[in-house]
Design a protein around this nucleic acid. Structure first.
Lengths: 339, 339
DNA sequence: TTGAAAGCGATACCAC
DNA sequence: GTGGTATCGCTTTCAA
């Protein structure tokens, strides 16, 4: 591939130096905020730079400092991944923080398959200062990259409990707790749950919250009421029908996402029962679906943009050698019509 | 902000040159595919490079060539923008093509408000080789940037008819035609439409397709059947109720997106009529909603990932000084339950 | 066909 | 405080 250069010819330190009557070194000092330069010269340099419409050359700086100002944002390229509106919002959060800090996000949508895939290779190549991983399923690659010394932040609690890679996540457990407790408070006696994929930590954590609500309420978890689904409409509908058949006295369902809540409602109505009068349903995500569906879904809201913001801030911290903090963002219950 | 460098120390041309017993210049030639180097030396250089696990330094190359290998992907930072799953998929398409061509996408989610905002400034700064704009509402910035000589590709037909900025888009007009024609073919006599926001070219084009279907079928467009909505559930529901009240003999509705199709169905059912038996409904987007909604929505499918791919390919073409092609991607009708 | 050497633009060390 | 200068890694004349 032969590419021709774009050349919006810009000014350089040399020109500023000449115009301001100082050396390149002084220009550098002023432009990097060195306090020790004489005020007069500082002013002269600034004036010259502005007069020339100076814009720094990132490549030159990167070559000189070894830092690129670029952070990779990696998302696994599964068919479903980026079509989940969730990720777009997370990206917005990341981008917003980075832009304000003179960093840039390099978006890489790619299969994270093998640890020695192109990405690992690339990330280790020093072309970026750090990497944020969305949608963590392939711990291998990430571990490999992190071990190479590249600052890494995960979005979503990693699988590996004793991984020491910093991450940010929504409080999935707290959300599950909130939803289930809300159903209890509403007077439900028999609350079932439709779990997400339990291979995902979000699925695990939401279920853990459901269980914790029982403990806090002094109730026993009845395993017959825990239906393992996998985030999809189909799985949830089947499991709900099964739940209803086996446990006719169910009066509440906590679905680990909104799509499954919708499926549950469909199943409940097919069986001739009413939502929320006979059975109350709470979803998770506060997705667009939950708002437009009739009846509108009561659901757990996550601070999605906050996830991106937190991840970006954590990355900036890492780049400044701060201790990484692990952020878990609070959820909020959105009460609508189904519970 | 003080940042410490990450330093995965890598090998350079100098080392390869020494190891292969040639000069740096020859290393450069070989690694850039210059045919004129003697096969033996070529082999030696390649062997040395592999042996050292050589990875090129993008910054150095950029400094030398004036090209960064980076393309900005800019999306307007409106609350709703990135939460539309559409964009995530487009990004995936772009990223995929770029990664395969050794280019990278710099994601910038930012308000495109004023032409002299930070972004325009940044894009003109020569930090990227080109820019792809998603969600075009603010022609000003884009025009400004393009005039500076930066290669620009738009996703979505621009407002300005005589703009000569290359773009890629779905065939919104063709999709509207397809949907309406399908309703006619199905036997509908009175087909109404719920338009999107007519400030957006997608909204305009889908409506134009609806009208064209009438022309092709030798029918008159009845303006009473054209209800101007704005993509939202609420607007569509109100407009549908109004349509039904005014035109009791409506037997088909083309909604310019799936959410509005769902709203139309809700309204129709509220009025005690059946879908599709009394009134057939076709949506647009083939969104997740259209699949999970009951009844499942018959809708127009767009090649969304194809949009991203086409945009990326067009950009690559521009960077190689090819004539830009304007891509309009075909749509396909997905027949489900509502029509 | 190959090598030497001069940049690209910014940084940072070393003198003064 | 300030200036000179080597340096980062790669590309690209220019000679040979």
């Amino acid at each position: 591939m032969t590419l021709t250069p774009t050349s919006p010819s810009r000014s350089t330190y040399a020109e500023i130096a000449t115009k301001a009557g100082v050396s390149k070194a002084t220009v550098s000092r002023v432009l990097n905020g060195d306090e020790r330069v004489h005020p007069d010269r500082t002013a002269a340099v600034i004036a010259a730079a502005e007069g020339l419409g100076y814009r720094p050359n990132r490549a030159a700086r990167a070559l000189s400092t070894g830092r690129t100002g670029l952070v990779a944002v990696v998302i696994d390229d599964e068919p479903t991944a980026l079509s989940d509106p969730f990720w777009g919002v997370v990206l917005a959060g990341i981008s917003r923080v980075f832009l304000a800090n003179d960093l840039h996000s390099l978006l890489m949508v790619t299969p994270l398959g093998s640890p020695d895939g192109a990405i690992a290779h690339y990330l280790e190549g020093g072309e970026v200062d750090g990497a944020i991983f969305l949608q963590v399923h392939k711990d291998e690659v990430i571990k490999k990259v992190a071990e190479q010394g590249l600052p890494v932040v995960l979005i979503g609690r990693p699988f590996d409990e004793d991984s020491d890679i910093p991450f940010v996540d929504n409080d999935n457990r707290g959300g599950g707790l909130q939803a289930t407790k809300y159903l209890f408070d509403r007077g439900c006696k028999q609350v079932a749950t439709l779990t997400g994929d339990l291979e995902a930590t979000a699925g695990q954590d939401r279920l853990a919250g459901y269980k914790q609500a029982h403990i806090e309420a002094g109730r026993e978890v009845n395993n017959d009421l825990v239906a393992q689904a996998n985030w999809t409409f189909e799985s949830a509908k089947i499991m709900t029908l099964r739940l209803l058949a086996k446990n006719p006295d169910i009066d509440g369902i906590f679905a680990a996402n909104d799509i499954m809540a919708i499926a549950a409602i469909a199943a409940i109505q097919e069986r001739g029962r009413r939502v929320p009068d006979d059975i109350a349903v709470v979803g998770f995500d506060d997705s667009l679906l939950s708002q437009t569906h009739r009846p509108a879904i009561t659901t757990v809201r996550q601070d999605i943009i906050g996830l991106g913001v937190a991840a970006a801030e954590t990355m900036i911290g890492l780049l400044q050698d701060h201790e990484p903090k692990i952020d878990v963002l609070a959820t909020e219950i959105m009460i609508r019509e189904t519970a």
